[in-house]
């Protein structure tokens, strides 16, 4: 389905997530527009990661609906959400360290790869062709991030530096050419310069791929300022502000939420 231009790509309506007595998302309404970069802000524990987990199907929302490209995706399994075209990174890096860089990125493309038993066990010629295609794809994607990283295709992920691990994670999320990319604190555990470098890389890669939207959770305010067109601020699972970076920084509620936390 081709979304109408003013129709949002993703729309969460009255989304509520309860963990026992704790309300992590409280009747949240969020829209992500086609091709935009949306910043998701809020103090620690305000429900940002929970929002990602609910969207990607890891948690089933207590109530509310999520619509993606006009289709109701609430309650779908993580696998089905991925098939629909949403991928993500995790706040704490989730690479499989014992596997190679190639394995880690290739798994991100699993919806394009043939997982059939007969194909994998007996059609080795066809598998070889598919494999060589994938190697080229992964290598090209890694190279757009960092030339040195592409040379480590068959090294184990355990040997990578923090920034390289983040890059690999982002490549894993990008290789299937998703319609929506969810980035959960991509700068966590990295220096200021590394963060800037990584953001430049992401913007650079984004220009080369089919246009997609991004939601980015980030604490580094200058990253938000430089990359996002619009921001949503959460506090206690509720949306307390929405607008451009300039608008939300002068918002009284936002200042109070952040001050209250410090």
């Amino acid at each position: 389905m081709i979304p109408v231009s003013d129709e949002p790509l993703l729309r969460a309506e009255k989304l509520t997530m309860r963990f026992g007595g704790l309300v992590a998302l409280d009747a949240l309404d969020i829209e992500v527009r086609p091709r935009e970069i949306l910043g998701l802000l809020g103090p620690n524990g305000s429900g940002k990661t929970t929002f990602f987990n609910v969207v990607t199907g890891l948690y089933a929302a207590s109530s509310g609906t999520i619509t993606f490209e006009g289709r109701n995706i609430s309650g779908l399994s993580p696998q089905a959400v991925y098939q629909a075209g949403i991928t993500r990174t995790f706040q704490r890096s989730r690479l499989s360290l014992s596997l190679s860089v190639f394995d880690n990125v290739a798994v991100g493309n699993s919806r394009m790869l043939d997982h059939g038993i007969i194909h994998n066990l007996f059609c080795r010629k066809a598998l070889l062709a598919e494999y060589e295609r994938t190697v080229e794809q992964v290598r090209t994607l890694l190279a757009t991030f960092n030339a040195a990283l592409a040379g480590k295709l068959f090294h184990s992920a355990a040997g990578l530096s923090m920034i390289d691990r983040r890059r690999v994670e982002i490549c894993r999320a990008l290789i299937s050419e998703p319609r929506l990319l969810l980035l959960d604190e991509p700068s966590a555990g990295m220096t200021h310069d590394e963060t800037a470098e990584l953001m430049d890389d992401i913007m650079h890669v984004r220009e080369k791929l089919a246009p997609f939207s991004v939601v980015i959770i980030e604490h580094e305010m200058n990253v938000i300022q430089r990359t996002t067109e619009r921001c949503v601020v959460l506090n206690y699972g509720k949306k307390i502000a929405e607008g451009s970076y300039a608008e939300i920084t002068v918002n009284a509620d936002v200042r109070a939420a952040y001050l209250g936390q410090e």
Binding site: P78, V81, S96, L97, S98, D114, L121, L127, R172
Partner: peptide, 28 residues
């Protein structure tokens, strides 16, 4: 060996090492 050296092998290793990451990337 063929199981290991195929997409099935990658998927199985993902299931062993990280079920959450595996499901988020479409592995059943």
């Amino acid at each position: 060996r063929r199981v290991e050296r195929s997409w099935l092998g990658v998927a199985m290793d993902m299931v062993r090492t990280d079920e959450i990451a595996a499901s988020v990337f479409g592995i059943s």
